[in-house]
């Protein structure tokens, strides 16, 4: 490839997509692993934060708050460059997996915890009034409803995790951005390759985001009649002047 003239990246970028696609595969793999393992762990953590046993509760709270409060990049470095100082060495990809799973678990735990809180108290009242045990109440009444409520935010979280995988490039995992950066460094065509990378991310993210949006509208319709009455207004409200 020749050196780039100021605007040539506008039409050159498609040429780079095939080179970058394997990186997309890695990014998707990381997303699937982090969410596939992270969400069930998050669910477990959410239940643990509601537990009566103090040790369980506090362990879960610490894991969640640390996982949510520390930047993912720092988590990545902690696992990849921090652990070796105490003798635990992980390769780049496993390190990334560990860090992302922790992150996904922490964020999803919080979402699930909030969803459980959103289930109206009357539901557990009615269940207990029927003499159902705490376990059965959670299993048949509370958790099914909480699951429904938590699906839209979890879909959004998955998209966020997909974006987060770009950080794995910093610890040399050979995903999309890593390949893009390497190519850019070789051919000095950063703008071109990064544009190609951006397009690839867009192609995956935008449909997913629209899907998540539709999903939350559809699932959200169950709870409030007042909301539906309000949604009937189709055109946006004019505020200052009619622009």
């Amino acid at each position: 490839m020749s050196t780039v003239t100021p605007l040539s990246w506008l039409w050159e970028w498609p040429h780079w997509v095939p080179t970058l696609l394997p990186g997309l595969g890695v990014a998707l793999l990381l997303t699937v692993i982090s969410c596939g393992i992270g969400y069930p762990l998050g669910f477990l953590l959410a239940l643990m934060t509601e537990a009566r046993s103090k040790p369980l509760k506090w362990t879960a709270l610490v894991l969640v708050e640390v996982g949510r409060g520390i930047p993912i990049l720092v988590l990545l470095f902690v696992v990849y460059q921090g652990l070796p100082s105490v003798g635990i060495l992980f390769d780049a990809l496993p390190s990334a997996c560990i860090a992302f799973v922790w992150s996904a678990a922490a964020y999803s735990a919080e979402m699930i915890r909030v969803s459980i809180g959103t289930v109206p108290r009357g539901q557990s009242d009615a269940s207990y009034a029927l003499s159902m045990s705490r376990f059965d109440t959670y299993r048949y009444i509370v958790l099914p409803q909480a699951a429904r409520i938590s699906i839209p935010p979890l879909v959004s979280l998955t998209i966020t995790m997909f974006h987060a995988t770009s950080l794995a490039s910093v610890i040399t995992v050979s995903e999309l951005m890593h390949i893009a950066y390497q190519q850019g460094a070789i051919y000095f065509n950063y703008m071109t390759v990064f544009t190609a990378a951006a397009v690839i991310y867009l192609v995956i993210t935008v449909p997913a985001a629209i899907f998540a949006d539709r999903l939350s509208k559809r699932l959200g319709g169950v709870t409030s009649v007042r909301q539906t009455a309000f949604r009937r207004r189709r055109t946006p409200a004019p505020i200052v002047t009619g622009i």
């Binding site: 109206p120 009357g122 539901q123 009242d125 009615a126 269940s127 009034a129 029927l130 048949y140 009444i141 099914p144 409803q145 429904r148 169950v222």
Partner: peptide, 13 residues
């Protein structure tokens, strides 16, 4: 005992 609630509290799912 059995209880009937003001807000019904039926299980929507």
């Amino acid at each position: 005992t059995g209880m009937v609630f003001q807000s019904f509290n039926l299980f929507p799912h």
